[in-house]
Design a protein around this nucleic acid. Sequence first.
DNA 1: TATGCAACAC
Length: 635
Amino acid sequence: MPSRAAIRMKHPSFSVSVTTASQLHDAVDRLLPLLRADASHASAARAIAAAVASFRPPSTLLSNRILHLLSSHPATLPDAVALLASLPSTDVCSYNTLVAALGRSSRGLASARALFDRMPRRDHFSWSAVISAHARHGQPRAALAIYRRMLREPGSAGADNEFTASSALAAATAARCARAGRELHCHVVRRGIDADAVVWSALADMYAKCGRVDDARSVFDRMPVRDVVSWTAMVERYFDAGRDGQGFRLFVRMLRSGIQPNEFTYAGVLRACAEFTCEKLGKQVHGRMTKSRAGDSCFAESALVHMYSKYGDMGTAVGVFRGMPKPDLVSWTAMISGYAQNGQPDEALHYFDMLLRSGFRPDHVTFVGVLSACAHAGLVDKGLGIFHSIKDEYGIEHTADHYACVIDLLSRSGLFERAEEMIDTMSVKPNKFLWASLLGGCRIHKNVRLAKWAAEALFEIEPENPATYVTLANIYASVGLFDEVENTRRIMELKRITKMPASSWIEAGTRVHVFLVGDKLHPQAEEIYALLKKLYLKMREEGYVADTGFVLHDVEDEQKQQDIGYHSERLAVAFGIIATPKGAPIKVFKNLRICGDCHTTIKLISKIVQREIIVRDSNRFHHFKNGSCSCRDFW
DNA sequence: TATGCAACAC
Protein backbone atom coordinates (compact mmCIF):
# COMPACT_ATOMS: atom_id res chain seq x y z
CA MET A 1 0.00 0.00 0.00
CA PRO A 2 1.72 3.25 -1.13
CA SER A 3 1.85 6.15 1.24
CA ARG A 4 -0.83 8.70 0.63
CA ALA A 5 -1.61 12.11 1.94
CA ALA A 6 -3.47 15.07 0.63
CA ILE A 7 -1.73 18.40 0.69
CA ARG A 8 -3.19 21.48 -0.77
CA MET A 9 -1.55 24.80 -0.26
CA LYS A 10 -1.28 28.12 -1.94
CA HIS A 11 1.49 30.60 -1.29
CA PRO A 12 2.10 33.80 -3.20
CA SER A 13 4.63 32.10 -5.45
CA PHE A 14 4.12 28.45 -4.75
CA SER A 15 0.99 26.41 -4.90
CA VAL A 16 0.88 22.66 -4.72
CA SER A 17 -1.68 19.96 -4.63
CA VAL A 18 -0.36 16.45 -4.06
CA THR A 19 -1.69 13.09 -3.02
CA THR A 20 1.06 10.60 -3.85
CA ALA A 21 4.67 10.22 -2.78
CA SER A 22 6.02 10.84 -6.27
CA GLN A 23 4.03 14.06 -6.58
CA LEU A 24 5.54 15.07 -3.28
CA HIS A 25 9.02 14.42 -4.62
CA ASP A 26 8.24 16.67 -7.55
CA ALA A 27 6.99 19.38 -5.22
CA VAL A 28 10.23 19.23 -3.24
CA ASP A 29 12.22 19.50 -6.46
CA ARG A 30 10.30 22.64 -7.40
CA LEU A 31 10.42 24.22 -4.00
CA LEU A 32 14.11 23.59 -3.35
CA PRO A 33 15.56 26.24 -5.69
CA LEU A 34 12.86 28.72 -4.63
CA LEU A 35 13.63 28.33 -0.96
CA ARG A 36 17.36 28.49 -1.59
CA ALA A 37 16.92 31.91 -3.16
CA ASP A 38 14.32 33.34 -0.87
CA ALA A 39 13.31 32.77 2.76
CA SER A 40 9.70 33.68 1.97
CA HIS A 41 9.19 30.07 0.90
CA ALA A 42 10.00 28.82 4.38
CA SER A 43 6.36 28.41 5.35
CA ALA A 44 5.63 26.34 2.26
CA ALA A 45 8.56 24.08 3.13
CA ARG A 46 7.28 23.70 6.69
CA ALA A 47 3.83 22.80 5.45
CA ILE A 48 5.22 20.05 3.25
CA ALA A 49 7.37 18.84 6.13
CA ALA A 50 4.31 18.61 8.38
CA ALA A 51 2.43 16.62 5.75
CA VAL A 52 5.27 14.17 5.34
CA ALA A 53 5.47 13.70 9.09
CA SER A 54 1.88 12.45 9.03
CA PHE A 55 2.58 9.90 6.31
CA ARG A 56 1.80 6.34 7.34
CA PRO A 57 3.84 4.26 7.19
CA PRO A 58 6.74 6.69 7.59
CA SER A 59 9.12 6.82 4.64
CA THR A 60 12.84 7.24 5.28
CA LEU A 61 13.41 8.34 1.71
CA LEU A 62 10.81 11.09 1.95
CA SER A 63 12.09 12.22 5.33
CA ASN A 64 15.56 12.58 3.89
CA ARG A 65 14.22 14.64 1.02
CA ILE A 66 12.44 16.94 3.44
CA LEU A 67 15.55 17.17 5.57
CA HIS A 68 17.42 18.21 2.49
CA LEU A 69 14.78 20.80 1.66
CA LEU A 70 14.75 22.31 5.15
CA SER A 71 18.57 22.42 5.19
CA SER A 72 18.71 24.52 2.07
CA HIS A 73 18.00 27.84 3.78
CA PRO A 74 19.27 29.21 7.11
CA ALA A 75 15.69 30.17 8.02
CA THR A 76 14.53 26.56 8.05
CA LEU A 77 17.73 25.01 9.40
CA PRO A 78 16.36 24.80 12.96
CA ASP A 79 13.38 22.89 11.56
CA ALA A 80 15.81 20.49 9.94
CA VAL A 81 17.67 19.97 13.20
CA ALA A 82 14.39 19.26 15.01
CA LEU A 83 13.28 16.88 12.28
CA LEU A 84 16.52 14.89 12.45
CA ALA A 85 16.16 14.53 16.20
CA SER A 86 12.61 13.22 15.83
CA LEU A 87 13.37 10.58 13.22
CA PRO A 88 13.31 7.03 14.58
CA SER A 89 16.19 5.85 12.43
CA THR A 90 18.77 7.99 10.74
CA ASP A 91 21.31 7.05 8.12
CA VAL A 92 24.67 8.67 7.38
CA CYS A 93 23.15 10.67 4.53
CA SER A 94 20.69 12.54 6.71
CA TYR A 95 23.44 13.51 9.12
CA ASN A 96 25.71 14.55 6.27
CA THR A 97 23.16 16.86 4.74
CA LEU A 98 22.70 18.65 7.99
CA VAL A 99 26.38 18.81 8.95
CA ALA A 100 27.12 20.38 5.57
CA ALA A 101 24.24 22.85 5.84
CA LEU A 102 25.14 23.93 9.37
CA GLY A 103 28.77 24.27 8.38
CA ARG A 104 27.96 26.80 5.68
CA SER A 105 27.58 29.61 8.18
CA SER A 106 30.00 30.48 10.92
CA ARG A 107 27.15 30.54 13.44
CA GLY A 108 26.31 26.94 12.66
CA LEU A 109 29.87 25.71 12.93
CA ALA A 110 29.65 24.58 16.55
CA SER A 111 26.38 22.70 15.97
CA ALA A 112 27.85 21.10 12.85
CA ARG A 113 30.78 19.89 14.89
CA ALA A 114 28.55 18.61 17.69
CA LEU A 115 26.36 16.75 15.23
CA PHE A 116 29.42 15.33 13.48
CA ASP A 117 30.79 14.04 16.80
CA ARG A 118 27.47 12.36 17.57
CA MET A 119 27.33 10.47 14.28
CA PRO A 120 27.33 6.71 14.72
CA ARG A 121 29.23 6.25 11.47
CA ARG A 122 31.01 8.66 9.15
CA ASP A 123 31.92 8.51 5.50
CA HIS A 124 34.23 10.69 3.40
CA PHE A 125 31.33 13.06 2.81
CA SER A 126 30.97 13.73 6.54
CA TRP A 127 34.71 14.28 7.08
CA SER A 128 35.00 16.54 4.08
CA ALA A 129 32.02 18.64 5.14
CA VAL A 130 33.28 19.19 8.66
CA ILE A 131 36.89 19.86 7.60
CA SER A 132 35.93 22.48 5.04
CA ALA A 133 33.45 24.08 7.43
CA HIS A 134 36.26 24.67 9.93
CA ALA A 135 38.63 25.85 7.19
CA ARG A 136 36.06 28.35 5.89
CA HIS A 137 35.16 29.84 9.22
CA GLY A 138 38.47 30.84 10.67
CA GLN A 139 39.49 27.55 12.25
CA PRO A 140 41.90 26.08 9.72
CA ARG A 141 44.17 24.57 12.39
CA ALA A 142 41.21 22.68 13.85
CA ALA A 143 40.35 21.54 10.33
CA LEU A 144 43.84 20.11 9.87
CA ALA A 145 43.59 18.36 13.23
CA ILE A 146 40.30 16.75 12.17
CA TYR A 147 41.95 15.55 8.96
CA ARG A 148 44.78 13.96 10.94
CA ARG A 149 42.25 12.37 13.27
CA MET A 150 40.52 10.90 10.23
CA LEU A 151 43.76 9.33 9.02
CA ARG A 152 44.30 7.75 12.46
CA GLU A 153 40.79 6.48 12.94
CA PRO A 154 40.34 2.79 12.13
CA GLY A 155 37.91 2.07 9.35
CA SER A 156 38.19 5.48 7.76
CA ALA A 157 40.74 4.52 5.10
CA GLY A 158 38.13 4.86 2.39
CA ALA A 159 37.50 8.42 3.46
CA ASP A 160 40.99 9.49 2.52
CA ASN A 161 40.19 10.52 -1.03
CA GLU A 162 40.30 13.58 -3.32
CA PHE A 163 37.43 15.26 -1.48
CA THR A 164 38.90 15.14 1.99
CA ALA A 165 42.38 15.91 0.63
CA SER A 166 41.22 19.08 -1.10
CA SER A 167 39.31 20.15 1.99
CA ALA A 168 42.48 19.68 4.03
CA LEU A 169 44.49 21.61 1.44
CA ALA A 170 42.02 24.47 1.70
CA ALA A 171 42.62 24.40 5.45
CA ALA A 172 46.40 24.57 5.00
CA THR A 173 45.84 27.48 2.62
CA ALA A 174 43.60 29.32 5.05
CA ALA A 175 46.17 28.75 7.81
CA ARG A 176 48.89 30.03 5.43
CA CYS A 177 50.83 26.99 6.55
CA ALA A 178 53.19 25.93 3.77
CA ARG A 179 54.61 23.17 5.94
CA ALA A 180 51.25 21.45 6.36
CA GLY A 181 50.59 22.10 2.68
CA ARG A 182 53.80 20.40 1.63
CA GLU A 183 53.03 17.40 3.82
CA LEU A 184 49.63 17.13 2.17
CA HIS A 185 51.29 17.41 -1.22
CA CYS A 186 53.51 14.42 -0.39
CA HIS A 187 50.53 12.58 1.03
CA VAL A 188 48.36 12.90 -2.06
CA VAL A 189 51.22 11.82 -4.31
CA ARG A 190 51.93 8.81 -2.08
CA ARG A 191 48.27 7.85 -1.94
CA GLY A 192 47.91 8.32 -5.68
CA ILE A 193 44.95 10.71 -5.37
CA ASP A 194 46.69 13.31 -7.49
CA ALA A 195 44.82 12.72 -10.72
CA ASP A 196 42.01 15.09 -9.83
CA ALA A 197 41.75 18.66 -11.18
CA VAL A 198 40.40 19.96 -7.90
CA VAL A 199 43.27 18.53 -5.86
CA TRP A 200 45.79 20.06 -8.24
CA SER A 201 44.02 23.42 -8.15
CA ALA A 202 43.95 23.37 -4.39
CA LEU A 203 47.66 22.51 -4.34
CA ALA A 204 48.66 25.36 -6.62
CA ASP A 205 46.51 27.78 -4.70
CA MET A 206 48.01 26.64 -1.43
CA TYR A 207 51.56 27.38 -2.61
CA ALA A 208 50.59 30.75 -4.07
CA LYS A 209 48.73 31.92 -1.00
CA CYS A 210 51.61 30.86 1.19
CA GLY A 211 53.71 33.32 -0.76
CA ARG A 212 55.29 30.84 -3.16
CA VAL A 213 53.87 31.95 -6.48
CA ASP A 214 56.64 30.31 -8.50
CA ASP A 215 56.09 26.94 -6.80
CA ALA A 216 52.41 27.35 -7.57
CA ARG A 217 53.25 27.96 -11.20
CA SER A 218 55.35 24.84 -11.43
CA VAL A 219 52.49 22.82 -9.93
CA PHE A 220 50.20 24.50 -12.44
CA ASP A 221 52.49 23.60 -15.33
CA ARG A 222 52.59 19.96 -14.26
CA MET A 223 48.82 19.56 -13.90
CA PRO A 224 47.48 16.64 -15.90
CA VAL A 225 44.22 18.50 -16.43
CA ARG A 226 43.57 22.22 -16.16
CA ASP A 227 40.05 23.54 -15.93
CA VAL A 228 38.72 27.09 -15.78
CA VAL A 229 39.19 27.13 -12.01
CA SER A 230 42.89 26.24 -12.11
CA TRP A 231 43.53 28.85 -14.79
CA THR A 232 41.56 31.55 -13.00
CA ALA A 233 43.22 30.86 -9.68
CA MET A 234 46.73 31.00 -11.13
CA VAL A 235 46.00 34.26 -12.98
CA GLU A 236 44.58 35.75 -9.78
CA ARG A 237 47.57 34.77 -7.70
CA TYR A 238 49.87 36.64 -10.05
CA PHE A 239 47.73 39.74 -9.61
CA ASP A 240 47.73 39.31 -5.83
CA ALA A 241 51.53 39.20 -5.91
CA GLY A 242 51.59 42.42 -7.93
CA ARG A 243 52.93 40.54 -10.94
CA ASP A 244 50.38 41.96 -13.34
CA GLY A 245 52.39 41.33 -16.49
CA GLN A 246 52.58 37.60 -15.80
CA GLY A 247 48.91 37.57 -14.81
CA PHE A 248 47.72 39.18 -18.03
CA ARG A 249 50.01 36.98 -20.13
CA LEU A 250 48.63 33.86 -18.50
CA PHE A 251 45.08 35.11 -19.07
CA VAL A 252 45.83 35.50 -22.78
CA ARG A 253 47.30 31.99 -22.86
CA MET A 254 44.15 30.73 -21.20
CA LEU A 255 42.03 32.28 -23.96
CA ARG A 256 44.32 30.79 -26.62
CA SER A 257 43.97 27.36 -25.02
CA GLY A 258 40.27 27.56 -25.72
CA ILE A 259 39.19 27.78 -22.07
CA GLN A 260 36.06 29.91 -21.68
CA PRO A 261 36.48 32.40 -18.85
CA ASN A 262 33.59 32.46 -16.40
CA GLU A 263 32.32 35.27 -14.18
CA PHE A 264 35.08 34.70 -11.61
CA THR A 265 37.77 34.95 -14.25
CA TYR A 266 36.30 38.16 -15.61
CA ALA A 267 35.80 39.71 -12.19
CA GLY A 268 39.41 39.02 -11.29
CA VAL A 269 40.87 40.31 -14.53
CA LEU A 270 38.71 43.44 -14.42
CA ARG A 271 39.78 44.13 -10.86
CA ALA A 272 43.39 43.86 -11.98
CA CYS A 273 42.72 46.20 -14.92
CA ALA A 274 41.30 48.70 -12.44
CA GLU A 275 44.12 48.30 -9.98
CA PHE A 276 46.91 48.48 -12.52
CA THR A 277 45.05 51.15 -14.56
CA CYS A 278 45.13 49.29 -17.85
CA GLU A 279 42.18 51.11 -19.33
CA LYS A 280 42.46 49.88 -22.92
CA LEU A 281 42.83 46.28 -21.80
CA GLY A 282 39.91 46.67 -19.41
CA LYS A 283 37.67 47.86 -22.21
CA GLN A 284 38.73 44.94 -24.40
CA VAL A 285 37.96 42.51 -21.62
CA HIS A 286 34.60 44.22 -21.14
CA GLY A 287 33.84 43.76 -24.83
CA ARG A 288 34.72 40.11 -24.72
CA MET A 289 32.71 39.56 -21.57
CA THR A 290 29.60 41.16 -23.05
CA LYS A 291 29.60 38.57 -25.81
CA SER A 292 29.80 35.66 -23.39
CA ARG A 293 27.26 34.30 -20.96
CA ALA A 294 29.51 35.13 -18.02
CA GLY A 295 28.75 38.80 -18.69
CA ASP A 296 25.26 38.43 -17.26
CA SER A 297 26.50 37.77 -13.77
CA CYS A 298 26.12 40.32 -11.03
CA PHE A 299 29.49 39.26 -9.82
CA ALA A 300 31.29 40.22 -13.03
CA GLU A 301 29.20 43.33 -13.67
CA SER A 302 29.94 44.76 -10.24
CA ALA A 303 33.61 44.38 -11.04
CA LEU A 304 32.92 46.37 -14.23
CA VAL A 305 31.22 49.15 -12.27
CA HIS A 306 34.20 49.24 -9.95
CA MET A 307 36.67 49.32 -12.83
CA TYR A 308 35.01 52.21 -14.64
CA SER A 309 34.79 54.12 -11.35
CA LYS A 310 38.52 53.65 -10.94
CA TYR A 311 39.02 55.07 -14.41
CA GLY A 312 37.08 58.17 -13.37
CA ASP A 313 34.38 57.25 -15.88
CA MET A 314 31.18 57.33 -13.87
CA GLY A 315 29.13 57.73 -17.05
CA THR A 316 30.05 54.26 -18.23
CA ALA A 317 29.86 52.87 -14.69
CA VAL A 318 26.28 54.03 -14.30
CA GLY A 319 25.47 52.71 -17.78
CA VAL A 320 26.65 49.24 -16.76
CA PHE A 321 24.73 49.49 -13.49
CA ARG A 322 21.48 50.50 -15.18
CA GLY A 323 21.84 47.61 -17.60
CA MET A 324 21.93 45.10 -14.77
CA PRO A 325 18.66 43.19 -14.45
CA LYS A 326 19.08 42.63 -10.73
CA PRO A 327 21.88 44.62 -9.09
CA ASP A 328 22.82 43.25 -5.69
CA LEU A 329 24.21 44.94 -2.59
CA VAL A 330 27.75 44.80 -3.94
CA SER A 331 26.69 46.50 -7.18
CA TRP A 332 24.96 49.30 -5.27
CA THR A 333 27.95 49.69 -2.98
CA ALA A 334 30.29 49.90 -5.96
CA MET A 335 28.19 52.78 -7.35
CA ILE A 336 28.19 54.64 -4.03
CA SER A 337 31.93 54.28 -3.53
CA GLY A 338 32.55 55.22 -7.14
CA TYR A 339 30.65 58.48 -6.81
CA ALA A 340 32.34 59.17 -3.48
CA GLN A 341 35.80 58.76 -4.95
CA ASN A 342 34.96 60.80 -8.01
CA GLY A 343 33.89 63.80 -6.00
CA GLN A 344 30.14 63.44 -6.50
CA PRO A 345 28.88 63.07 -2.94
CA ASP A 346 25.32 64.08 -3.81
CA GLU A 347 25.08 61.24 -6.29
CA ALA A 348 26.63 58.87 -3.77
CA LEU A 349 24.02 59.79 -1.17
CA HIS A 350 21.28 59.58 -3.77
CA TYR A 351 22.31 56.02 -4.59
CA PHE A 352 22.39 55.22 -0.89
CA ASP A 353 18.78 56.41 -0.61
CA MET A 354 17.76 54.36 -3.63
CA LEU A 355 19.49 51.32 -2.17
CA LEU A 356 17.48 51.69 1.03
CA ARG A 357 14.26 52.14 -0.92
CA SER A 358 15.02 48.97 -2.91
CA GLY A 359 14.85 47.07 0.36
CA PHE A 360 18.53 46.22 0.72
CA ARG A 361 20.19 46.17 4.10
CA PRO A 362 23.49 48.05 3.77
CA ASP A 363 26.53 46.27 5.15
CA HIS A 364 29.71 47.63 6.71
CA VAL A 365 31.35 48.19 3.31
CA THR A 366 28.38 50.22 2.08
CA PHE A 367 28.82 52.52 5.04
CA VAL A 368 32.49 53.02 4.28
CA GLY A 369 31.43 54.32 0.87
CA VAL A 370 28.69 56.56 2.24
CA LEU A 371 30.88 57.99 5.00
CA SER A 372 33.75 58.66 2.64
CA ALA A 373 31.33 60.55 0.38
CA CYS A 374 30.41 62.76 3.35
CA ALA A 375 34.07 63.17 4.23
CA HIS A 376 35.05 64.28 0.74
CA ALA A 377 32.17 66.73 0.66
CA GLY A 378 32.69 68.11 4.17
CA LEU A 379 29.16 67.10 5.20
CA VAL A 380 29.88 66.92 8.91
CA ASP A 381 26.37 66.69 10.37
CA LYS A 382 25.12 64.32 7.69
CA GLY A 383 28.17 62.10 8.10
CA LEU A 384 27.92 61.98 11.89
CA GLY A 385 24.21 61.20 11.63
CA ILE A 386 24.91 58.27 9.33
CA PHE A 387 27.77 57.12 11.53
CA HIS A 388 25.45 56.87 14.54
CA SER A 389 22.73 55.19 12.51
CA ILE A 390 25.09 52.32 11.68
CA LYS A 391 24.76 51.03 15.20
CA ASP A 392 21.46 52.55 16.35
CA GLU A 393 19.36 51.84 13.27
CA TYR A 394 21.10 49.00 11.49
CA GLY A 395 22.54 47.16 14.45
CA ILE A 396 25.96 46.89 12.81
CA GLU A 397 28.97 47.29 15.11
CA HIS A 398 31.24 50.16 14.15
CA THR A 399 34.43 48.95 12.55
CA ALA A 400 37.80 50.66 12.69
CA ASP A 401 37.18 51.62 9.06
CA HIS A 402 34.01 53.50 10.00
CA TYR A 403 35.89 55.40 12.66
CA ALA A 404 38.63 56.15 10.12
CA CYS A 405 36.05 57.71 7.79
CA VAL A 406 34.64 59.89 10.56
CA ILE A 407 38.09 61.01 11.66
CA ASP A 408 38.74 61.84 8.01
CA LEU A 409 35.53 63.87 7.97
CA LEU A 410 36.27 65.74 11.21
CA SER A 411 39.92 66.47 10.58
CA ARG A 412 39.43 67.58 6.98
CA SER A 413 36.93 70.05 8.38
CA GLY A 414 39.40 71.20 11.01
CA LEU A 415 37.30 69.88 13.91
CA PHE A 416 40.29 68.50 15.76
CA GLU A 417 38.88 68.60 19.29
CA ARG A 418 36.02 66.33 18.27
CA ALA A 419 38.38 64.06 16.37
CA GLU A 420 40.65 63.78 19.38
CA GLU A 421 37.76 63.05 21.68
CA MET A 422 36.45 60.34 19.39
CA ILE A 423 39.84 58.64 19.13
CA ASP A 424 40.13 58.66 22.92
CA THR A 425 36.74 57.09 23.46
CA MET A 426 36.28 54.75 20.49
CA SER A 427 35.44 51.12 21.08
CA VAL A 428 37.90 49.53 18.65
CA LYS A 429 41.61 49.95 18.13
CA PRO A 430 42.43 52.76 15.68
CA ASN A 431 43.91 51.39 12.47
CA LYS A 432 46.44 52.88 10.09
CA PHE A 433 43.75 54.43 7.88
CA LEU A 434 42.45 56.38 10.83
CA TRP A 435 45.87 57.77 11.71
CA ALA A 436 46.61 58.50 8.05
CA SER A 437 43.31 60.40 7.81
CA LEU A 438 44.17 62.44 10.86
CA LEU A 439 47.62 63.15 9.47
CA GLY A 440 46.06 64.20 6.16
CA GLY A 441 43.71 66.59 7.96
CA CYS A 442 46.66 68.03 9.86
CA ARG A 443 48.38 68.64 6.55
CA ILE A 444 45.45 70.69 5.29
CA HIS A 445 45.06 72.71 8.48
CA LYS A 446 48.73 72.79 9.46
CA ASN A 447 48.16 71.22 12.86
CA VAL A 448 51.63 70.23 14.03
CA ARG A 449 50.69 68.93 17.47
CA LEU A 450 48.22 66.29 16.28
CA ALA A 451 50.34 65.52 13.24
CA LYS A 452 53.11 64.35 15.58
CA TRP A 453 50.63 62.16 17.46
CA ALA A 454 49.30 60.59 14.27
CA ALA A 455 52.75 60.11 12.78
CA GLU A 456 54.01 58.40 15.89
CA ALA A 457 51.10 55.98 15.87
CA LEU A 458 51.79 55.27 12.20
CA PHE A 459 55.49 54.69 12.88
CA GLU A 460 54.39 51.96 15.29
CA ILE A 461 52.03 50.30 12.83
CA GLU A 462 54.03 50.63 9.62
CA PRO A 463 57.52 51.94 10.35
CA GLU A 464 58.64 51.42 6.78
CA ASN A 465 56.06 53.60 5.07
CA PRO A 466 57.82 56.63 3.56
CA ALA A 467 54.51 58.50 3.09
CA THR A 468 54.25 59.18 6.82
CA TYR A 469 57.70 60.78 6.97
CA VAL A 470 57.10 62.82 3.83
CA THR A 471 53.74 64.12 4.98
CA LEU A 472 55.08 64.98 8.42
CA ALA A 473 58.04 66.81 6.86
CA ASN A 474 55.69 68.68 4.55
CA ILE A 475 53.62 69.80 7.52
CA TYR A 476 56.75 71.06 9.29
CA ALA A 477 57.84 72.83 6.11
CA SER A 478 54.45 74.46 5.68
CA VAL A 479 54.80 76.23 9.04
CA GLY A 480 58.48 77.04 8.59
CA LEU A 481 59.89 74.48 11.05
CA PHE A 482 62.83 73.64 8.84
CA ASP A 483 64.93 72.13 11.65
CA GLU A 484 62.21 69.57 12.13
CA VAL A 485 62.08 68.94 8.39
CA GLU A 486 65.80 68.22 8.43
CA ASN A 487 65.36 66.01 11.49
CA THR A 488 62.69 63.95 9.82
CA ARG A 489 64.83 63.56 6.74
CA ARG A 490 67.74 62.41 8.86
CA ILE A 491 65.63 59.79 10.59
CA MET A 492 64.53 58.51 7.19
CA GLU A 493 68.11 58.24 6.07
CA LEU A 494 69.13 56.55 9.28
CA LYS A 495 66.38 53.96 8.90
CA ARG A 496 67.21 53.63 5.21
CA ILE A 497 63.68 54.48 4.24
CA THR A 498 63.55 55.73 0.71
CA LYS A 499 60.75 57.85 -0.64
CA MET A 500 58.72 56.18 -3.29
CA PRO A 501 59.52 58.27 -6.35
CA ALA A 502 56.48 60.19 -7.52
CA SER A 503 55.38 59.18 -10.97
CA SER A 504 52.45 59.93 -13.24
CA TRP A 505 51.29 58.13 -16.31
CA ILE A 506 48.87 58.57 -19.14
CA GLU A 507 47.59 56.27 -21.86
CA ALA A 508 47.96 57.62 -25.38
CA GLY A 509 47.81 55.67 -28.59
CA THR A 510 48.74 52.13 -27.74
CA ARG A 511 51.22 53.02 -25.03
CA VAL A 512 51.41 54.11 -21.42
CA HIS A 513 53.70 57.11 -20.98
CA VAL A 514 55.33 57.43 -17.56
CA PHE A 515 56.84 60.62 -16.13
CA LEU A 516 59.00 61.38 -13.09
CA VAL A 517 59.78 64.83 -11.61
CA GLY A 518 61.78 66.96 -14.03
CA ASP A 519 62.02 63.97 -16.34
CA LYS A 520 63.48 64.68 -19.79
CA LEU A 521 63.58 61.10 -21.01
CA HIS A 522 60.41 61.29 -23.04
CA PRO A 523 61.04 61.64 -26.80
CA GLN A 524 58.75 64.68 -26.85
CA ALA A 525 60.30 66.25 -23.75
CA GLU A 526 61.23 69.46 -25.52
CA GLU A 527 57.70 70.04 -26.73
CA ILE A 528 56.32 69.27 -23.27
CA TYR A 529 58.57 71.74 -21.48
CA ALA A 530 57.96 74.43 -24.09
CA LEU A 531 54.21 74.03 -23.65
CA LEU A 532 54.46 74.27 -19.86
CA LYS A 533 56.54 77.45 -20.13
CA LYS A 534 53.91 78.96 -22.40
CA LEU A 535 51.15 77.98 -20.01
CA TYR A 536 53.00 79.44 -17.01
CA LEU A 537 53.34 82.77 -18.82
CA LYS A 538 49.61 82.85 -19.40
CA MET A 539 48.97 81.89 -15.78
CA ARG A 540 51.23 84.63 -14.48
CA GLU A 541 49.25 87.11 -16.54
CA GLU A 542 46.24 85.96 -14.56
CA GLY A 543 48.09 86.65 -11.32
CA TYR A 544 49.14 83.14 -10.32
CA VAL A 545 52.00 82.77 -7.79
CA ALA A 546 53.47 79.33 -7.05
CA ASP A 547 52.69 78.03 -3.57
CA THR A 548 56.02 76.65 -2.47
CA GLY A 549 54.86 75.40 0.92
CA PHE A 550 54.43 71.98 -0.61
CA VAL A 551 58.07 71.42 -1.42
CA LEU A 552 59.92 69.30 1.08
CA HIS A 553 63.33 70.97 0.98
CA ASP A 554 64.23 74.26 2.55
CA VAL A 555 65.94 75.82 -0.44
CA GLU A 556 65.90 79.10 -2.27
CA ASP A 557 62.48 80.08 -3.51
CA GLU A 558 63.52 80.08 -7.11
CA GLN A 559 64.80 76.53 -6.90
CA LYS A 560 61.54 75.50 -5.26
CA GLN A 561 59.62 76.94 -8.16
CA GLN A 562 61.79 74.94 -10.51
CA ASP A 563 61.07 71.67 -8.74
CA ILE A 564 57.41 72.32 -8.43
CA GLY A 565 57.10 73.53 -12.01
CA TYR A 566 57.99 70.13 -13.38
CA HIS A 567 56.20 67.70 -11.11
CA SER A 568 55.33 64.46 -12.86
CA GLU A 569 51.60 65.20 -13.03
CA ARG A 570 52.21 68.41 -14.95
CA LEU A 571 54.48 66.71 -17.43
CA ALA A 572 51.84 64.07 -18.02
CA VAL A 573 49.09 66.67 -18.39
CA ALA A 574 51.16 68.68 -20.85
CA PHE A 575 51.92 65.56 -22.83
CA GLY A 576 48.21 64.76 -22.80
CA ILE A 577 47.41 68.14 -24.32
CA ILE A 578 49.90 67.48 -27.08
CA ALA A 579 49.11 63.84 -27.73
CA THR A 580 45.31 63.75 -27.62
CA PRO A 581 42.81 65.34 -30.00
CA LYS A 582 41.71 68.88 -29.28
CA GLY A 583 38.81 69.02 -26.84
CA ALA A 584 39.21 65.41 -25.69
CA PRO A 585 39.42 64.83 -21.94
CA ILE A 586 42.88 64.13 -20.54
CA LYS A 587 43.28 61.40 -17.97
CA VAL A 588 46.36 61.17 -15.79
CA PHE A 589 47.19 58.76 -12.99
CA LYS A 590 49.61 59.45 -10.18
CA ASN A 591 51.03 57.01 -7.64
CA LEU A 592 51.08 59.54 -4.79
CA ARG A 593 48.79 62.32 -3.70
CA ILE A 594 48.63 65.28 -6.07
CA CYS A 595 50.56 68.31 -4.81
CA GLY A 596 48.63 71.42 -3.77
CA ASP A 597 50.33 73.71 -6.21
CA CYS A 598 49.84 71.26 -9.06
CA HIS A 599 46.17 71.22 -8.11
CA THR A 600 45.94 74.99 -8.51
CA THR A 601 47.95 74.92 -11.70
CA ILE A 602 45.96 72.18 -13.36
CA LYS A 603 42.75 74.03 -12.54
CA LEU A 604 44.08 77.02 -14.44
CA ILE A 605 45.38 74.87 -17.29
CA SER A 606 41.94 73.30 -17.69
CA LYS A 607 40.58 76.79 -18.21
CA ILE A 608 43.31 77.99 -20.55
CA VAL A 609 43.22 75.00 -22.86
CA GLN A 610 39.47 74.37 -22.41
CA ARG A 611 39.85 70.68 -21.67
CA GLU A 612 38.51 68.43 -18.98
CA ILE A 613 41.50 67.06 -17.08
CA ILE A 614 41.07 64.07 -14.80
CA VAL A 615 43.79 63.23 -12.31
CA ARG A 616 43.49 60.10 -10.23
CA ASP A 617 45.96 60.27 -7.39
CA SER A 618 46.64 57.70 -4.72
CA ASN A 619 43.36 58.26 -2.96
CA ARG A 620 40.79 59.96 -5.12
CA PHE A 621 39.83 61.63 -8.36
CA HIS A 622 40.08 65.24 -9.37
CA HIS A 623 37.95 66.28 -12.31
CA PHE A 624 39.28 69.67 -13.45
CA LYS A 625 37.04 71.69 -15.69
CA ASN A 626 37.05 75.33 -16.67
CA GLY A 627 39.20 76.50 -13.78
CA SER A 628 37.70 74.47 -10.94
CA CYS A 629 37.90 70.98 -9.53
CA SER A 630 35.21 68.49 -8.57
CA CYS A 631 36.78 68.19 -5.11
CA ARG A 632 35.90 71.84 -4.51
CA ASP A 633 39.43 72.20 -3.15
CA PHE A 634 38.36 70.05 -0.26
CA TRP A 635 40.91 67.30 -0.12
C1' DT B 1 30.96 16.88 0.38
C1' DA B 2 36.34 19.24 -2.19
C1' DT B 3 39.51 23.97 -5.78
C1' DG B 4 38.95 29.73 -8.02
C1' DC B 5 34.95 34.34 -5.30
C1' DA B 6 32.99 40.97 -7.08
C1' DA B 7 32.28 46.30 -3.62
C1' DC B 8 35.44 50.08 1.12
C1' DA B 9 38.68 54.16 3.57
C1' DC B 10 44.82 57.30 3.97
